[in-house]
């Protein structure tokens, strides 16, 4: 990586070495990718969503490929906060990058307790509140579709958290600006969006849904235009930093999100088919800035010009 351009970005009180993060649920707990990509190159690792108790997840089939994308209904399978702290966090601490822990619960109290457990935890640089998972009956998206409920969760977490709090928003809403402002007003330090879009696929031979959960979350390049539009709208609606997510697979994709107003990006599904995607995107952003004669990534954030 060239030192000539400054890639540092800020998310509230946290400074990232560069704006490229991993998206929750696509990078495990970091160790899964350690042999394939240099983790210290990343701006931050966002963990798989963690709940108080371990979750087994949904019955299979859980994933299905779709044109330029995939549907998943994993069901938030995770090891739970206890095992996360014992078994996963020690590895993450020594990766040489920032660590964001994604948390999820069924009630305000559960979110608050998770934040309390993680408060002051060494090596946890920020929390990301998942109020947008489409694949579970309770919690998850229920909080993300209602501005009042979302605000309640954010306030409950903020009361306990010692780290900056990122709120991950669902695209499955009518007015993303409304949700963005509700999270900001409740004290969020940053927003991340979008989570997956609710989708479906049917096997016409068996006439059954291809996912056991019937519906799932659509991700991958197919959703990028929708994500970009929503990030642009959310960034215009709030003062806090916005993290762009949705179909980002290349540096060009990431730069589009930065121009639309995102202060950082998360790479998700691309990790599955190209484990080196994040590191390649970091290099690609640096090369673009140099080519454009920019000395800092800050210069292009929100730099979208009029049509």
């Amino acid at each position: 990586m060239k030192a000539a351009v400054d890639l540092r970005v800020r998310l509230g009180a946290v400074e990232l070495a560069n704006p490229v993060m991993t998206a929750s649920g696509t990078f495990g707990y970091g160790a899964e990718f350690a042999g394939l990509v240099k983790l210290s190159c990343l701006g931050a690792i966002v963990t798989k969503g963690i709940s108080l108790a371990p979750k087994a997840g949904n019955p299979p089939p859980r994933v299905v490929e779709t044109p330029a994308g995939m549907l998943n209904a994993i069901g938030l399978e995770n090891v739970g906060i206890e095992r996360f702290l014992q078994e996963k966090l020690p590895f993450l601490r020594q990766c040489g990058t920032k660590v964001v822990v994604n948390i999820l619960g069924d009630s305000e109290e559960e979110y608050a307790e998770l934040a309390a457990r993680l408060a002051g935890a060494e090596g946890v640089d920020a929390l990301e509140i998942n109020i947008s998972c489409p694949n579970v009956r309770h919690g998850g998206m229920a909080f993300g579709a209602d501005p009042q409920m979302a605000a309640g969760v954010v306030r409950a977490v903020k009361r306990q958290a010692s780290q900056p709090v990122i709120v991950k928003l669902s695209p499955n809403v009518t007015d993303i600006a409304l949700m963005a402002r509700a999270a900001e007003d409740a004290g969020a330090d940053a927003l991340s969006l979008i989570n997956t879009l609710v989708g479906m696929a049917i096997d016409i031979r068996t006439r059954r849904p291809k996912l056991a959960n019937r519906t799932g979350g659509l991700s991958g390049p197919a959703i990028k235009p929708v994500a970009l539009r929503m990030v642009w709208q959310a960034a215009a609606a709030v003062q806090i930093p916005v993290i762009g997510i949705g179909g980002i697979a290349t540096a060009e994709d990431a730069i589009e999100f930065l121009l639309a107003g995102a202060s950082a990006v998360q790479v998700g599904t691309a990790n599955f088919y190209n484990p080196q995607a994040t590191a390649q995107i970091v290099d690609g952003i640096a090369a673009y800035l140099e080519e454009q004669g920019e000395n800092s990534v800050q210069n292009i954030i929100g730099g979208l010009r009029d049509a």
């Binding site: 997840g57 994933v63 998943n72 994993i74 399978e77 599955f272 088919y273």
Partner: peptide, 13 residues
Amino acid sequence: AMACGLGACLGCA
């Protein structure tokens, strides 16, 4: 079916 083969997607349950 699996998306990653690396233990990250958890699709191959």
